[in-house]
Each structure stands twice: as structure tokens, then as C-alpha cells.
């Protein structure tokens, strides 16, 4: 009984914290972007503007929830839910601390990869069901981009898995007690980081949205809370990738003095900040450049990483 309660507490706790983080990130991102552009960002709603997400939510809920007459209605409504659900499900395997994790799966890494693959459906279906050429182009780009980058996202993690000798995220963190995997797996880290950015289609890899060419791409036709779900999904995605980078390469909750959960969140938020910095600093590559980087640079690098890591491990044996 007590065990069940604890599990429920963790489940709803994680859900609540993640949703709050996603909402809070709206404000964080806009403030940070503001600062990096010599502005203040939203600073009017509440102290320092922290209530901005609340205002946004009120606004977005008060907007007309418009379904275009030419849209495929059921799919159109379903699509935004998919992205939020898949990302939230991925959090199930993230070990926040040794004690706080929803599921301690043996195949945690594979589970995460599977969930992130399912996320593609959201974007693809949203774009297709909108019945709008820009949305469809956005959806096609998203599918190609996410499928491509998934390939070496998985491959880039293989070094980590080999070093840890496990697909279990707990064990991967535990394996980093001596040395964070960022050091032996620097190449893997770089590839995973880039793939993560592409996977969440964040700037500079936001080609599926590309407001300047595709007028927001797959979510052109969305308004109101459906649009809001895409937003939330995106921020959850950032948080997830940051949390996983922390887990795979930066020793997860490991750290001196402070409690494990604090360490986990410090590390995670550093990467969230980094994601936002990327958006502030880098221009969007052309689509062909994006795909070329993926297949001609990232894939060989990931494979090289596996071969070298594997070789070293074999040799060490």
C-alpha cells in the first residue's frame, strides 16, 4: 500500500514538475532571449514577469479553437496530444535520483529511443491533417529530419551503453561514479547533442516550422490550446533531452555536497540554457545542409565512435 502510494506520488510528482517546468520555460526562454538580444523580455506580469506563462495560458485558452473546414478533423485534434504524451512517457525512465524514478527499465535507452520515434507521428499527422501545403511540407521535412537523426542518435549512445555495459539508465549513471562519460565519450556527446536538437526540432534545426518560409509549418493551422500543446511538447522535449544528456554524459544526479536531485536539475538546466543560447545565436541551415550533415558527418562520426570505443574496450579486456 505504502509502496503504491509512493509510486503514485512519484508519477504525479514527476508529471506536475515537468508540466510546471514546461510552463516556466516559456518565461525563461523569453527572458533569456531578451537578455541575449539586449532586451528585458517579459517583465510586466508579476514580479520579474514570472506570471507571464499564466497570462499566456489565459490568452491561449480564450482564443478561438479553430478547426479549419478543410482539415481531417479527428487526426487534426489528435496530433498535438501525441507529442506531449510521447515526451511525457519518455520521462518514465529518467532517473532523477537513485530513489526518484518512475520505472527502472532494463532497456531504458531503447525505450527512450522508441518514444522519441513515436513523437514523429505528431508532427507528421499534424501537418498532413491540416490540409495546407505549407503544413504538409513542414510535416515532410520533420519526418525526414527526425528519422535521419534518430539513426545516429541511437548509435551515439552505443558508446555509453558499451562503457556502462547496460541499457538501464540507473546503471549508466552509476557507471559514471569515477568518470563522467563526457570524457571518454566526447564524440558521442557531441553527436547526441546535435541529434537531440534536431529531434526536438529546435533552432537552429527548426526547419519543419521555419516561419520565414513555411509560415510555422506543421502547426500553421493550429490555434488555441491545440497550438499550446505543441508549445508544451516542445519545452518538454528540451527538458527531456537535457535530462538525458545529464544522465548519459554528466553523471546524472552524481555530485558532491548538494542533494542528488539538486545536482540533477542544475545540470539539466544548464543544458536547457544551452538550448536557448543555441536559438539566440545560430542561424538556421538550409534543408539540404541539414540532411547532409546528418548522413555524411554525424553518421560516420557515430560509427567511428562505436568502433573506437568498442576497440578500446576489447583491448582493455
Amino acid at each position: 500500500m505504502n509502496q503504491t502510494l509512493k509510486h503514485l506520488l512519484i508519477v504525479f510528482g514527476v508529471l506536475g514538475v515537468m508540466m510546471s517546468i514546461a510552463a516556466g520555460l516559456i518565461w525563461v526562454e523569453r527572458r533569456l532571449l531578451g537578455f541575449w538580444q539586449d532586451r528585458y523580455g517579459p517583465n510586466r506580469v508579476g514580479p520579474m514577469g514570472v506570471l507571464q506563462p499564466l497570462a499566456d495560458v489565459i490568452k491561449i485558452l480564450a482564443k478561438e479553437d479553430w478547426v479549419p473546414p478543410f482539415a481531417d478533423k479527428p487526426v487534426f485534434i489528435l496530433a498535438p496530444a501525441i507529442i506531449v504524451i510521447t515526451v511525457l512517457l519518455s520521462f518514465a525512465v529518467v532517473p532523477f535520483t537513485p530513489g526518484i524514478a518512475i520505472a527502472n527499465l532494463n532497456i531504458g535507452v531503447l525505450y527512450f529511443l522508441a518514444m522519441s520515434s513515436l513523437g514523429v507521428y505528431s508532427v507528421a499527422l499534424a501537418g498532413w491533417s491540416s490540409g495546407n501545403k505549407y503544413s504538409l511540407i513542414g510535416a515532410l521535412r520533420a519526418s525526414a529530419q527526425m528519422i535521419s537523426y534518430e539513426v545516429f542518435m541511437g548509435l551515439s549512445l552505443m558508446g555509453v551503453v558499451m562503457l556502462a555495459g547496460s541499457f538501464n539508465l540507473h546503471e549508466i549513471v552509476e557507471a559514471q561514479r569515477g568518470l563522467w562519460f563526457i570524457v571518454p565519450q566526447f564524440l558521442g556527446f557531441v553527436v547526441f547533442l546535435i541529434a537531440g536538437v534536431a529531434e526536438t526540432h529546435r533552432l537552429p534545426f527548426d526547419l519543419p516550422e521555419a516561419e520565414s518560409e513555411l509560415v510555422a509549418g506543421f502547426h500553421s493551422e493550429y490555434s488555441g490550446m491545440k497550438f499550446g500543446l505543441f508549445f508544451v511538447g516542445e519545452y518538454l522535449g528540451i527538458t527531456l533531452i537535457s535530462a538525458l544528456i545529464t544522465t548519459f554524459f554528466f553523471g546524472g544526479w552524481l555530485g558532491p555536497l548538494l542533494p542528488p536531485v539538486v545536482w540533477f536539475f542544475i545540470k539539466t538546466f544548464l543544458f536547457v540554457g544551452f538550448f536557448i543560447l543555441l536559438r539566440a545565436a545560430l542561424p538556421r541551415p538550409r534543408y539540404d545542409q541539414l540532411i547532409r550533415i546528418g548522413w555524411k558527418l554525424m553518421l560516420p562520426l557515430a560509427l567511428l565512435n562505436i568502433v573506437v570505443t568498442g576497440g578500446i574496450i576489447l583491448a582493455a579486456r
Binding site: 533569456l32 537578455f35 541575449w36 538580444q37 539586449d38 532586451r39 528585458y40 543560447l277 543555441l278 539566440a280 545565436a281 545560430l282
Partner: peptide
């Protein structure tokens, strides 16, 4: 570029 943009955090608004 990342560094330059990051340093803008400390500029006058």
C-alpha cells in the same frame, strides 16, 4: 557566435 551572444547577458539593455 555562442560565446558572443552569451556575453550579451551582461550588456546594458
Amino acid at each position: 557566435a555562442l560565446w558572443t551572444v552569451f556575453m550579451h547577458l551582461f550588456r546594458r539593455k
